[in-house]
Design a protein around this nucleic acid. Structure first.
Lengths: 337, 337
DNA sequence: CTGTTAGCGCCTTCAG
DNA sequence: CTGAAGGCGCTAACAG
């Protein structure tokens, strides 16, 4: 397949009969090159189709003009963040490099740190890390976290009002008449996961419903981890009549599991999600959920990072965006009133 | 912000009291290092949080284990391709690097070639290019194109049955009773854009409806370019009662423009899109469209590229996937029967 | 104005 | 078993 080698600056220099330094100057528009020489070099560049290697260039010079978006996976949540960020970055002069650091690696653990180490300082000038559980406070470059882990990270961060959203979601189910409400928890260690659980508990308490630890299972935000958990929940002797899943993906998964078990949604089981990723509308039935302004979160992350890169803006900023309740068709009154 | 420098192999070597070569061997699991030394080095690595720089590594060795997905932008279409590709790539041993090569650059022209040149040979082992209009036939690495430009490229490619999809979309409008049907064309140069126009014309001809060049405007697949075009279409003296837009994004945009002009969709204007990106369901009203199997296309692109990387598989493969008609609520019979 | 020199961080011979 | 040396493609000083 790959017969021809990549054309390097050396090839251009040789063909044009000048030194590599001269070519470099022409490419970067530095002064100190005769117009005629520059012209000839440019011709050769066009003819050979040369373009400087990002890798070599970034190894040498500290600034690359590239911003990294580090995600575990390209799933619906990170994809929406990416869209929002991309729209905001257009015309900023920065190129975007989205990196999926998880794929193939043994442990899901520490992908954020590993990815950051691999790219920071050389390839990228700054990074936005999506749902990190561990991050180096100081990676050597500005870093902004979207929906990060619990506890102080020292990182500027963007998230949404997870507690309030979860409260509203659970209150919606309670208002419908549900009393046994299951909770499919998120990824342990993530702040959003904890806040959503807190919102769930708070709503229960406010309504005077006793908290039953049996009704909480860890869905982990991911399809693969949600199946077993929701199955456990739905096969309890006294199974819940409603489930609040900590994100849409696992909520949709729960609906699938319910159907497999012969339950109808929402007739036999109400389900509420969180995020409002596009997939939630496509689900059957369309999912009632709590919307996070994902595009706005991506855009805000970019703005924050840009401020950091330009040495303005507080490093300990915390931007919290509001959530919104979206009622669709996966919830209704419980069968037995 | 960036106080501490990135930790390099030299730091590890110095701390562990060995040479960089030894550290390199430990990292890459090469033989020829005493167990005790290796152990000590590993400890230092953990302690310092070292991880080899992708840039430096890839500059030196030809293989990086990274696959690039080159897009102009992270918009709904490429995001779906990305999701499908990512799911397929999980566990393959390859890391994914999605690169948005357009942002900030002067000309939209030639982003594919530029991006490929910048990354190929150094950073990535292979690439999937999404909707390229120009590509170097031989970039030095295996390349797969998704929904590429017109004419022979010499590249393995994935697309869907654009002609048939467009035919079905237009026939749907005709069957509803529409006679003046506008077409909002796609990005010139892309094969999909041409095929969709061909399908539109073919349907008209089969139905014995005279083709009116006034009813075709170029939407260019993008929001920014679609606004003016659809406005022109909808303000014609004898305006169309239905519009078939070459993709969902511009179809949704057309609905917005229609509303701005005081038209109701679908009562006064029917609209059909193409792609079935998640946004089409979220639109108001939900968009009738032609579905492309976007996730499958991404997955297939990865499979093809993998085959190429492993020196199996034909370089001139062309995978064409079927489309599917999805009726939602943006189309109905024309008002005046 | 142009070429030479010295690395950026890493990996790979090749000696010790 | 370990370390020193060279070079990947490029840029920034510094000579000429």
């Amino acid at each position: 397949m790959s017969t021809r080698r990549r054309v390097t600056i050396t090839d251009v220099a040789r063909t044009a009969g000048v030194s590599v330094a001269t070519v470099s100057k022409v490419v970067n528009g530095r002064y100190g090159v005769a117009a005629s020489t520059a012209e000839r070099v440019r011709e050769v560049i066009d003819q050979l189709g040369y373009s400087s290697s990002l890798v070599a260039r970034s190894l040498r010079s500290s600034r690359t003009g590239v911003i990294g978006i580090l995600v575990a996976d390209f799933e619906p949540f990170s994809a929406e963040i990416l869209k929002g960020l991309s729209a905001e970055a257009a015309g900023s002069g920065y190129e975007l490099l989205a990196w999926s650091g998880f794929s193939g690696h043994a442990g899901r653990e520490g992908w954020e740190k590993r990815s950051l180490n691999q790219l920071a300082g050389t390839l990228i000038d700054g990074a936005v890390v999506v749902t990190p559980t561990v991050v180096d406070a100081d990676a050597g470059i500005p870093v902004v976290a979207v929906d990060p882990h619990t506890g102080p990270s020292g990182l500027p961060m963007i998230d949404s009002d997870n507690f309030h959203g979860a409260l509203v979601a659970t209150e919606h189910l309670i208002a419908l008449g549900h009393r046994r409400i299951g909770f499919l928890a998120g990824r342990p260690g993530l702040q959003s996961a904890e806040e959503r659980e807190r919102g769930y508990r708070e709503a229960l308490e406010k309504a005077g419903i006793a908290f039953d630890p049996e009704l909480i299972r860890v869905g982990g935000y991911r399809e693969e981890t949600a199946d077993g958990a929701s199955r456990e929940l739905l096969t309890l002797d006294d199974r819940p009549t409603a489930v609040f899943a900590a994100n849409d993906i696992t909520a949709i998964r729960t609906m699938k599991v319910a159907v497999d078990l012969g339950l109808r949604v929402p007739a036999d089981l109400s389900v509420v999600g969180f995020d409002n990723v596009p997939e939630s509308v496509l689900a059957d039935p369309p999912l009632t959920t709590i919307a996070q302004p994902l595009h706005e979160m991506g855009a805000e992350a970019f703005r924050l990072l840009l401020a950091l890169l330009q040495d303005r803006g507080e490093p300990d900023t915390h931007v919290r965006l509001p959530t919104e309740f979206i009622e669709r068709r996966s919830t209704q009154r419980p069968a037995a009133g």
